Amino acid sequence: MGQKIIAKNKKAFHDYFIDQTFEAGLVLRGPEVKSLRGGKVNLRDGYAQVKDGEVYLYNVHISPYSFTTYANQDPMRVRKLLLHKREIRKLIGKLHEKGIALIPLKIYFIENGKAKVELGLARGKKLYDKRASLKEKESKRDVERTMRRDR
């Protein structure tokens, strides 16, 4: 499966436990697609919510395309996500649990040129969980360093 990754939300993996992921299509306007191709997107504060049986993406900043001939759209506008009805019903059930959020993990283009967003069902980490994951990451890095030195 050939996909060109545009942006990743690395902070999400630090701040949340990701339980499950979903792939959704994005409803975009022409200049937004051009900006995405240029990599001008920020997922850091983004989240998704289910509203009236549809899923929307909030706080994702797609910079305005500089070469457009008409007025640019709002870079922080709410964007509709395309999911199957059964996936939306499943999300509604999961999001009613306490402490669960729907976070965008990455935006990418698939082979036919369509933009997709990977959403993760996330549970917030406590401070001690974040520290533990940092220690684990550092220990893995140290082990890899020693393995490279021994070769």
Results as ranks from 00 to 15, higher is better:
residue 70 Y to E: 15
residue 66 S to N: 03
residue 84 H to E: 15
residue 69 T to F: 14
residue 98 K to C: 05
residue 107 I to Q: 02
residue 107 I to P: 01
residue 66 S to Y: 11
residue 109 F to H: 00
residue 47 Y to Q: 05
residue 103 I to S: 01
residue 52 D to H: 12
residue 57 L to T: 00
residue 67 F to N: 09
residue 93 G to V: 06
residue 45 D to G: 04
residue 111 E to S: 05
residue 107 I to N: 02
residue 112 N to S: 15
residue 105 L to G: 13
residue 48 A to I: 07
residue 116 K to M: 08
residue 112 N to V: 14
residue 63 S to M: 07
residue 91 L to C: 07
residue 86 R to Y: 13
residue 82 L to V: 13
residue 94 K to H: 03
residue 96 H to W: 10
residue 90 K to G: 03
residue 60 V to E: 07
residue 44 R to I: 06
residue 117 V to G: 03
residue 57 L to Y: 10
residue 105 L to P: 14
residue 94 K to Q: 06
residue 94 K to P: 12
residue 67 F to S: 01
residue 65 Y to K: 02
residue 116 K to T: 11
residue 53 G to V: 08
residue 105 L to S: 10
residue 75 P to S: 09
residue 63 S to T: 03
residue 109 F to T: 00
residue 71 A to F: 14
residue 68 T to R: 09
residue 91 L to W: 12
residue 108 Y to T: 00
residue 80 K to W: 10
residue 82 L to R: 03
residue 111 E to L: 06
residue 56 Y to K: 06
residue 58 Y to P: 07
residue 50 V to F: 14
residue 82 L to N: 12
residue 79 R to F: 11
residue 85 K to F: 13
residue 105 L to I: 13
residue 92 I to Q: 10
residue 111 E to A: 08
residue 114 K to G: 01
residue 60 V to A: 02
residue 60 V to Y: 12
residue 44 R to A: 14
residue 66 S to G: 06
residue 108 Y to M: 00
residue 82 L to D: 15
residue 46 G to V: 09
residue 75 P to W: 03
residue 58 Y to L: 08
residue 71 A to K: 09
residue 60 V to F: 11
residue 107 I to R: 00
residue 44 R to P: 14
residue 112 N to P: 15
residue 47 Y to A: 02
residue 117 V to T: 04
residue 106 K to M: 00
residue 102 L to F: 10
residue 79 R to I: 03
residue 73 Q to G: 14
residue 70 Y to Q: 15
residue 62 I to T: 05
residue 92 I to R: 03
residue 57 L to S: 08
residue 45 D to M: 02
residue 105 L to W: 15
residue 102 L to V: 08
residue 64 P to E: 05
residue 62 I to M: 06
residue 59 N to G: 09
residue 48 A to E: 11
residue 72 N to T: 02
residue 74 D to Q: 01
residue 101 A to I: 10
residue 56 Y to S: 04
residue 53 G to P: 09
residue 96 H to K: 04
residue 58 Y to E: 01
residue 80 K to L: 07
residue 81 L to C: 05
residue 99 G to S: 07
residue 48 A to V: 09
residue 49 Q to T: 09
residue 57 L to K: 02
residue 47 Y to D: 13
residue 72 N to V: 05
residue 87 E to H: 13
residue 117 V to Q: 00
residue 61 H to D: 02
residue 82 L to A: 06
residue 51 K to P: 04
residue 116 K to R: 08
residue 104 P to Y: 06
residue 67 F to T: 01
residue 68 T to F: 08
residue 96 H to F: 13
residue 86 R to C: 08
residue 69 T to M: 01
residue 91 L to R: 05
residue 87 E to R: 11
residue 98 K to Y: 08
residue 90 K to D: 07
residue 114 K to L: 00
residue 81 L to M: 01
residue 63 S to P: 07
